[in-house]
Simulated assay, not measured.
Amino acid sequence: MAAWARAAAPLAEAAVATPAEPWRCGGTWFVGLDALDNDTRGTVGATDFPWDEVGLAPTALHRAQVSVVRPGYPQPSPDETEAGFRFRLNRDSAHLDGLIAEGPEKRRRVVEPHRWIIGLPLNAADAGASPLVVWEGSHEIMRAGLLAALQGVPEADWGAVDITEAYQKARKRVFAECARVELPGVPGEAVVLHRLLVHGVAPWAKGARAAGEGRMVAYFRPVMGSVGAWLLAP
């Protein structure tokens, strides 16, 4: 994992230096979707992806997201409502990947059912430098809440169902019942998340420091076959 991070870091830094998208949150977050120049096996340069070490079966991978968070995160921005900023600041912008908010009312459907999420830190950063945050056990609460909302709907049609209220209700229960855990990391480590786990990013703690632009992490989220598998598989 350390060798992969060393090989990936210069490519990630190059992507940040010539960004294909603007920084968000008042210039404190580079989303970096598909920014890393890896191949479908996860190889960067001549360095293979550490499948055995992370404990995952090899699968085809997209170009990794290179997420970079700077000191001061988050800051207000014109593309985010005041309520959205407060949620980012006070609730770490907690969310479930794969749900796409559509239209002016931000109605949600399951559009990208991911197999799992893995994050590999690419540079050194203090624990308070906007670490990844997860809510322990939240995947089972989210699974139960979404399945209840889909009762009576043919499984083949689950991806077309508006699950906004069910999602928000289940997430509210997560906040009340699940422990919030911060997961800072360093190069040579990896974090593997269940695809239904609620997660987010903590605000940058006062005095925290990171090498380079800020905390830099490569994320992979390969898509699985169906919304049914996404909700029903272990």
Rank of each mutant, 00 (worst) to 15 (best):
V227W: 01
R86K: 11
S67V: 09
P104D: 03
K172P: 00
P113W: 13
H95W: 11
V223L: 10
K106P: 00
W29A: 12
A127K: 15
R91F: 02
W204K: 06
A144K: 13
T81G: 08
A3Q: 14
F87Q: 00
R171K: 13
R195Q: 01
A8Q: 10
A176N: 12
N123S: 08
G159S: 04
E13A: 15
V191P: 00
P74A: 13
H194T: 03
E105W: 06
E182S: 13
K106A: 12
V66I: 15
L61A: 08
L99Q: 02
P131Y: 10
Y219G: 04
G32E: 07
A148G: 04
R143Q: 12
N123E: 07
A176M: 12
R109F: 03
G228Q: 10
Y219K: 07
R41G: 13
S130T: 12
A170T: 08
R107Q: 10
E112D: 11
K169I: 07
W116R: 01
T28F: 11
R41V: 06
P50V: 02
G145D: 04
L183I: 14
G145A: 08
V191G: 02
L147R: 13
N38P: 06
K106S: 07
R143D: 00
D92Q: 03
I118Q: 02
L120Y: 01
V111R: 07
A211V: 10
H62A: 14
A170E: 06
V201Q: 00
D48Y: 01
W29I: 04
G225V: 05
D126Y: 08
T59V: 14
L33P: 00
G128S: 11
F87D: 00
A208Y: 03
F175K: 04
V192Y: 02
